[in-house]
Amino acid sequence: MTERHHDQQELREQIEHTREDLGRTVQALAAKADVKARAQEKATEVTRQAAAKAGELRTMAADVAHQVQDKLPEPVKETAVRAARQTRGNRTVVLAAAAGTTVVVLLVVRRRRRRS
């Protein structure tokens, strides 16, 4: 009887092990079938990668801008600084000019489309 009891115990252990394996397999298949969750994970990863790349590009652009500034002649630098100050002081004028230009461009495009 001891041998029979041992065989039954071994069989129970095998059944339990098989159930655990089956449970893990079902969970893995359910995760693969969950398209929404997988898409969300992929979107999160792509967003993270894009943010990292944007940071790299920002740093590169700043480096290039500094290199260009270093190579500019002083009169050009002074003119650029003066123009920037004037623009900051007259934001309303600059915005109004940009809005006016946009309206003119839209009207021209609209008129050309009517003629076509």
Rank of each mutant, 00 (worst) to 15 (best):
E45S: 08
E45R: 11
V46R: 04
V46I: 07
V46E: 08
V46W: 01
T47S: 13
R48P: 00
Q49R: 11
Q49W: 03
A50H: 14
A50F: 10
A51M: 12
A51E: 15
A51H: 15
A51S: 14
A52E: 12
A52V: 01
A52C: 05
A52R: 15
K53Y: 11
K53H: 07
A54G: 04
G55I: 07
G55E: 08
G55A: 12
G55W: 02
E56N: 07
E56T: 03
L57R: 10
L57H: 08
R58A: 09
R58P: 00
T59C: 07
T59E: 12
T59W: 12
M60A: 15
M60H: 13
A62N: 08
D63G: 04
D63W: 05
V64G: 00
A65C: 05
A65T: 10
A65K: 07
Q67E: 15
V68T: 06
V68Y: 06
Q69D: 13
Q69L: 13
Q69M: 14
D70H: 09
D70P: 01
L72C: 07
P73S: 09
P73G: 02
E74H: 08
P75G: 01
P75Q: 02
V76E: 05
V76S: 05
K77C: 02
K77H: 02
K77I: 02
T79F: 12
A80E: 11
A80V: 11
A80G: 12
A80Q: 13
A80Y: 09
V81Y: 11
V81K: 12
V81S: 12
R82N: 10
R82S: 04
R82E: 06
A84Q: 05
A84N: 06
R85G: 05
R85V: 09
R85P: 00
Q86H: 14
Q86M: 15
R88N: 15
G89D: 04
G89A: 09
G89R: 05
N90S: 06
N90T: 05
N90A: 03
N90K: 03
R91D: 03
R91G: 09
T92R: 10
V94F: 03
V94G: 04
V94Y: 02
A96Y: 02
A96H: 08
A96S: 06
A97D: 10
A97H: 08
A98W: 03
T101I: 15
V103S: 02
V103G: 01
V104F: 01
V104N: 01
V104A: 10
V105N: 01
L106E: 04
L106G: 04
V108H: 02
V108N: 03
V108M: 11
V108I: 12
V108D: 02
V109Y: 01
V109Q: 09
V109H: 04
R110L: 15
R111I: 04
R111M: 11
R111S: 10
R111C: 09
